[in-house]
């Protein structure tokens, strides 16, 4: 029973980490169709932002709370720069985008090495997040609870933004039919830029969360980028709720299979399941139905 509960929690927690890493991507890749290989480096930038903020402020608790919005802005600005300088010249050229953003990711990694050194750095977790909470004899690490809550908050805020605000309506309209949206007076250029800002900002937030879990070094992003793309593809391109379900299903599957086998086998099995699933349902869990002909 305890094992059951703790593994379920581990799965949900793993899912929430995947979700945070993938949420921004769900917006930029899912909604806008931009394959941004530098998304992982925006996550890395968020993690380094947390490191810089902690060194400036000293206090671990305060710096975590300051880091979250700071990393959102840093990630967002990086995204905005990428969009304005490179991507907007190559919408509808997905292969070029892939190569260019991959190049940008290499540049950002080298930049991180030059600025912060090749050795990993440490961001201390605040005292109120250290250690576990015991419920029914099961220990839940507080950092993982924090990330779970953060992921849920991020999803709720993003969904509300898309569903209830004028900006959200413009984003959805642009996604569903770009030319029709344009002819109804929506500035799709501006909408693209804001969408990219928000999506990249979410990557920054994910980076701050990841400082609680793992190492902070120049290859932080590469550890997560593939999983993040998997979540978006399995969830169904163009859907936030698809990404949410996919992240949690993959997280729980990984931790359950890992418990009865090993970490390496679990990775292989989960990947095989994804391949099999996409064979049967190439469009992912959810499909956006639009009236456009393409």
């Amino acid at each position: 029973m305890e094992i059951l509960l703790s593994q379920l929690f581990n799965g949900l927690s793993g899912g929430s980490i995947l979700l945070l890493a993938a949420l921004g991507l769900a917006l930029t890749f899912g909604q806008m169709g931009v394959i941004n290989m530098a998304h992982g480096e925006f996550i890395m930038a968020g993690a380094y932002t947390a490191f810089v903020v902690q060194n400036l402020l000293g206090d671990a608790g305060l710096s975590l709370l300051v880091s979250l919005p700071a990393a959102f802005v840093v990630g967002g600005l990086l995204g905005l720069a990428l969009e304005a300088l490179l991507l907007r010249r190559m919408y509808h050229r997905p292969l070029d985008t892939l190569l260019v953003t991959f190049g940008v990711s290499l540049v950002l990694q080298q930049l991180a090495r030059d600025v912060f050194g090749t050795a990993g750095v440490d961001v201390a977790a605040p005292e109120w997040l250290s250690g576990p909470v015991e419920v029914f004899g099961v220990a839940f690490p507080k950092t993982r609870l924090f990330i779970l809550v953060l992921a849920i908050v991020a999803v709720v805020v993003l969904s509300a933004l898309l569903a209830f605000t004028p900006l959200g309506r413009r984003i959805r309209a642009t996604v569903q039919n770009r030319s029709l949206a344009e002819s109804s007076g929506i500035s799709t250029r501006r909408t693209d830029r804001i969408t990219f800002f928000v999506g990249s900002g979410l990557a920054g937030v994910a980076g701050v969360a990841l400082t609680l879990m793992g190492s902070i070094s120049s290859n932080l992003g590469t550890n997560y980028i593939v999983d993040a793309f998997l979540v978006v593809v399995v969830g169904g391109v163009g859907q936030i709720k698809g990404a949410v379900i996919a992240a949690f299903v993959l997280g729980v599957a990984q931790s359950w299979i890992e418990y009865s086998t090993t970490a390496s086998i679990a990775k292989v099995v989960v990947l095989a399941l994804i391949v099999a699933f996409l064979q049967a349902r190439p469009q992912g869990i959810f499909v956006v139905r639009t009236r456009s002909l393409v």
Binding site: A139, R144, E258, Y259
Partner: peptide, 20 residues
């Protein structure tokens, strides 16, 4: 006896096993 792939980032399950 547990092995993690190189670059593995999520040790929740392995640590659960260690603890148990």
């Amino acid at each position: 006896e547990e092995y993690a792939p190189l670059g593995h980032t999520d040790f929740s399950t392995i640590v659960s096993k260690v603890k148990a």
